[in-house]
Amino acid sequence: MTTEASQHPLELTNDFAPGESNFIKVDNFKFFYGKKEALHGINLEIPSRKVTAFIGPSGCGKSTLLRNFNRMNELIPGVHHEGDITIHGTSIYDPSVEIIALRRRIGMVFQKSNPFPMSIFENIVYPLRIAGQNTRSVLEETVERCLRSAALWDEVKDRLHDSALGLSGGQMQRLCIARAVASRPEILLMDEPCSALDPIATAKVEELIIELKKDFTIVIVTHNMQQASRVSELTAFFYLGNLVEFDNTRKIFTNPSMKQTEEYITGRFG
């Protein structure tokens, strides 16, 4: 998009193979909030262009791990990590990696939709504007592309310059997805994207996730196990800061290897 980004070692667009098995590689990763160890040495390989779900009870560390992929956790004072996370072979903690560029390659959707108090148009082009892109035609083209890929174009195309805060809850969350894909990332992180939505809006976002995996590697944290089984191909079950089991979603939900996984998905705890 900008020259600054394309010179960067984490420019992944042209040289990664779809289906690559260790697109995101988590290597003996430990994470600490102050003295409290929230993740105890996680090892995990997430393939590209698939949907991977993180499940587990509250406080199990699934969101913490997700928020390390784009280093959002570093906004919290007093945190540190051990081990490594690599994306397409580049460590995200390599000194040459700029956090700004990393976050441009990795879109994030939050639990509560958080559109800016601006127009729909300005919300989507924000990632471009902060990268110095102000050419009208590029911005307009991006808005249409992103709104179409978030399945929102037909609903809002006549009021692009109205406030984004006038949208419904489900539309706002899809707008946030559109904004997250505006900088053409390879990876989409979703932190419980449907937990504040009604069932109809949830169904729309789930359809969208299945559609988006053609172009993006998606990692989704969810408390809703039906959702994990509906949208994901792979599921990782976390418990008390450990990765208990990581396998095909079908296997996790029908024939899990670990007793803890079975107890959790059958609702015996958590």
Partner: peptide, 15 residues
């Protein structure tokens, strides 16, 4: 100003 605005902005790579 809600923290969610800052999170959203940092999340798309803003300084």
């Amino acid at each position: 100003v809600p923290y969610a605005f800052r999170e959203a902005s940092f999340g798309v790579g803003a300084t």
